[in-house]
């Protein structure tokens, strides 16, 4: 069922969540690094999921540490950039993303995280 999920992403009223992400990143940069969102997969199995490191990455960007953000999760840059676009109200209502591109991005990010957590 996930394979047939729409690649048309509904970006309507993402502005407030985007503000939350950007300012959440800035706030996290000033909090102890233990504050984050636990990954169920990593907690249960020790294996990171493709999205592990995103909180760390967004926190680094919130603190202005670009290289630290890339080291934690390159996808974080994309997410943060998308949030700023949405925050400025420049995001179109519908964004159509090709599924192969999405899949490749997620898989690349996953391999990155697997290496970062020394699973590969």
């Amino acid at each position: 069922m996930i394979a047939t999920a729409r690649y048309e992403v509904d970006c309507h009223s993402l502005r407030v969540p985007a503000v939350g992400l950007v300012f959440g990143g800035i706030a996290l940069a000033h909090l102890p690094s233990s504050v984050g969102i636990p990954c169920p997969l990593r907690v249960l199995t020790g294996v990171p999921c493709p999205f592990c490191g995103l909180t760390t990455s967004v926190r680094a960007l919130g603190g202005g540490h670009l290289s630290a953000a890339v080291r934690a999760a390159p996808l974080g840059l994309v997410v943060f950039a998308a949030a700023i676009v949405a925050l400025l109200g420049l995001m179109p209502e519908r964004v159509r993303l090709p599924i192969p591109l999405l899949a490749a991005a997620v898989m690349a990010e996953w391999v990155f995280e697997l290496i970062r957590f020394h699973v590969l």
Partner: peptide
């Protein structure tokens, strides 16, 4: 799960969008 595009946005009675639900 797939096929038709996402429902259009409109007022009361329509499906709520993610952002609003998230808030």
């Amino acid at each position: 799960y797939g096929g038709a595009p996402i429902a259009p946005h409109a007022g009361p009675g329509q499906l709520a969008d993610w952002g609003t639900r998230f808030i």
